[in-house]
Design a protein around this nucleic acid. Sequence first.
DNA 1: GCGAATATTTTGCCACACGAAATATCTTAC
DNA 2: GTAAGATATTTCGTGTGGCAAAATATTCGC
Lengths: 157, 157
Amino acid sequence: METDKVVVSPEGEAARRTRFVQALSDTFRALMWQGNKQTTGFMERIGLTLPQAVVMWTLGAYKGTVTMSDIAQMTHQSGATATGIVDRLVDAGLVERVRDIGDRRVVYVQITAAGSTKLEEIEAERQKQTEQMTERLNDKELEQLNSLLTRLIVSFD
Amino acid sequence: METDKVVVSPEGEAARRTRFVQALSDTFRALMWQGNKQTTGFMERIGLTLPQAVVMWTLGAYKGTVTMSDIAQMTHQSGATATGIVDRLVDAGLVERVRDIGDRRVVYVQITAAGSTKLEEIEAERQKQTEQMTERLNDKELEQLNSLLTRLIVSFD
DNA sequence: GCGAATATTTTGCCACACGAAATATCTTAC
DNA sequence: GTAAGATATTTCGTGTGGCAAAATATTCGC
């Protein structure tokens, strides 16, 4: 019969795909797991918690004019949470609050000199860690991985 | 001169590598970020927190004979933390504590029938989500990504 | 100038996360 | 056999992060 020729292995292909996705799903879980462990060590070394580091990165990326609302939005947190995290960064002397003169409701959060130094330390540490993690991959593979992951990120929303 | 031919661009190669690593490092950070946001939605849908889900996964992987110490060790947490998480899973009816008869100090944590059902739901949801995330990648790319990430995981410790 | 909108903080509540102390049990040394 | 130490788990105290709802302060619209 002709259908035998046209459809070679209908379940086979779908199953193959499912198997690949499943394998990747497990890899992601393992990666999340290992990543968590590694992140813990990283955070201990730099002396900040992850949410605190994320706020510092945000400030580093948009130097100078970041409001509390911006932070809450960019880090996907409620304003109340952002207040708490920034409070602790202020206590640590890495950041300071400055009220806007024009609109006295808004509060800018700025990196202090100590904060800048800390941020550089963090970035150096992060770079070092990624280097260590990728030492088994050659340049071509590195580029490939980056490309594939970037396409994954695009798929997120 | 011969050295001109042998060493084409000494700094260029190292710089190229550094650039690749840096790009990947940024991609990782973005991935962690987006992943966090996505995880939040995932957890809301399944009605558990991430630490709770991790414990459920652990129980699913080592069916039947998992002690509190095992959980603490496998999830990289202190015993005190594990106690709290398991407490809440017990409250939710997904898990139960059983004392060892021989050594009455040790406590086994076992998945209940409701817990098994929940675990299946979680896995289905996770599979669905990975499928959605990877829909832009073909089979070959999927395999490639999995292979590269696996080699990354190996490099962790 | 008065009510609605906006930006931030405060409050109250819960989940983690840890070390240290407490509890219960087992093992070893004598 | 029992006292001393080791082991497994929980309890306690403290701190961070997470949110919604209320409170506060300020600006905007009309």
